[in-house]
């Protein structure tokens, strides 16, 4: 999977988890912009784990500023 494809997938998952338009989500979108709570993060991390078999903890996402950082984290584990 290319970086662009992965970014698109994560954007789709993020859109569903945060109940917002996925087409407006880019690597630069911040989690502050998405304005969600822990239940949204749980929905996002569970989808990533179910679909890509990568476990990202809520604690990790809470420290991330942008969706791009999440993509990097998932890509790193997929490459291992």
């Amino acid at each position: 999977m290319t970086k662009e494809e992965l970014t698109q997938k994560i954007a789709e998952y993020t859109g569903v988890a945060y109940k917002t338009d996925a087409s407006a989500i880019t690597a630069d979108t911040t989690f502050d912009d998405l304005d969600g709570g822990s239940m949204n993060m749980i929905a996002l991390t569970s989808t990533i784990e179910n679909e890509l078999d990568v476990e990202v903890t809520i604690h990790e996402i809470m420290k991330m500023k942008t969706v791009g950082e999440l993509v990097d984290r998932v890509e790193q584990e997929l490459d291992e």
Partner: peptide
């Protein structure tokens, strides 16, 4: 339940 079988086992 929001998890796959593998995620539950984890």
């Amino acid at each position: 339940c929001i998890y796959s079988e593998k995620a539950i086992r984890r």
